[in-house]
C-alpha cells in the first residue's frame, strides 16, 4: 500500500508531461484552424515524405557509424585498468558539458572553406568542399551522439561475468568464438539502448542540418520548426507521423533483441 502511494507523484508527472501533451498533439493533428475534425494536416504532412525519408536515412547512417565506432571502443575500454577506464569515460563526457550549438559551430569552422581541414588537405593537393552536404550533417550527428552509444554498450559489457569468458576458453573456444558466442550476444542489450539513444534524437533533430548541411539537407525537425510558425496543425501531424516511425523502429529493435537473447 505504502509503495503505491510513493508512485503517485510519478503518475501525475507522466500524466501532465507525457500523456496530456500526446493527446493534445493528437487533437491538434486531427483538427483544422477552426477546431473541426479533418485529415487535412496529414495530407499536408505527406508533402514532406521525401524529407521524412531523408531524415530517417541520415539518422540510420549516423547510428550505424556510431555503433561501428563505439563498439570496439567500448570493448577495449573493458580491457583497460579501472583507472584508465575512468579517464577515458571522462574524456568522452567532457565535450558533452559544452553547449550543443557551440560544438556544431566548431564543426562549421573546422569544415569551412579555408578552414583547418581545407587548408591541410590543400597542402596535400586535395581540393574539395567539406561543408554544406549530407556527409557534413552525418559527421556532426556522429560527433554529437557518439557518447550516447559508447556509454550504454560499455556499461553492459563491463558487467559481463569474466567467469563466462574463462569457461568458454576452458571449453576450447578461440578468441573469435568467445567474442561471437559470449561477448556479442551478452552485449546486445547495450547495443539496443545505444541505438535507441542515438537514433531517436538524431531522426528528429534540427539545427545540425541548418548549420552543416546545404540547401538539400533540410530535416524533418527543421520543417516542423518552420511550419509551426503559421500552421500548428500540420506541425503536429508531422510530429505524430514521426512518432509512429520511431515507435515502429523501436518495436523492430526490441523484437530483434529478444530473438538474439533466446538464441
Amino acid at each position: 500500500m505504502k509503495s503505491r502511494r510513493l508512485t503517485i507523484p510519478y503518475i501525475i508527472w507522466m500524466l501532465v508531461f507525457t500523456m496530456i501533451p500526446i493527446v493534445m498533439i493528437g487533437v491538434t493533428a486531427f483538427t483544422d484552424k477552426k477546431g473541426n475534425f479533418t485529415f487535412e494536416p496529414f495530407e499536408k504532412a505527406f508533402v514532406y515524405s521525401n524529407v521524412f525519408v531523408k531524415s530517417l536515412i541520415i539518422a540510420l547512417i549516423s547510428t550505424a557509424i556510431c555503433l561501428v565506432l563505439a563498439y570496439p571502443l567500448a570493448y577495449l575500454l573493458t580491457k583497460m585498468r579501472k583507472s584508465s577506464q575512468r579517464t577515458v569515460v571522462m574524456l568522452l563526457m567532457i565535450p558533452m558539458w559544452m553547449n550543443f550549438l557551440l560544438r556544431i559551430y566548431a564543426w562549421m569552422i573546422l569544415l569551412q572553406r579555408n578552414g583547418p581541414l581545407d587548408t591541410a588537405l590543400s597542402l596535400l593537393g586535395i581540393h574539395g568542399t567539406y561543408i554544406g552536404n549530407t556527409a557534413a550533417v552525418i559527421v556532426g550527428m556522429v560527433y554529437e551522439y557518439l557518447p550516447f552509444m559508447v556509454l550504454p554498450v560499455y556499461t553492459v559489457m563491463s558487467k559481463i561475468d569474466p567467469g563466462l569468458i574463462e569457461a568458454a576458453q576452458d571449453l576450447g573456444a578461440g578468441n573469435a568464438s568467445v567474442f561471437g558466442k559470449v561477448i556479442l550476444p551478452l552485449s546486445i542489450p547495450g547495443i539496443i539502448s545505444g541505438v535507441t539513444m542515438v537514433f531517436v534524437p538524431s531522426a528528429s533533430t534540427f539545427l545540425v542540418s541548418q548549420y552543416l548541411g546545404g540547401t538539400d539537407d533540410i530535416m524533418i525537425g527543421d520543417v516542423i520548426d518552420k511550419i509551426f510558425w503559421t500552421d500548428e496543425n500540420t506541425g503536429a501531424a508531422i510530429s505524430l507521423v514521426m512518432m509512429v516511425f520511431i515507435f515502429v523502429f523501436l518495436v523492430i529493435m526490441n523484437l530483434f533483441g529478444d530473438e538474439e537473447a533466446i538464441a
Binding site: V47, N50, I218, V223, I227
Partner: peptide
Amino acid sequence: IYAYMQEQFVNIQAE
C-alpha cells in the same frame, strides 16, 4: 495568405 506563403517557402526548401 501568410500561412500559404510560409508553407510554400518550407516546400521550396523541402523539395
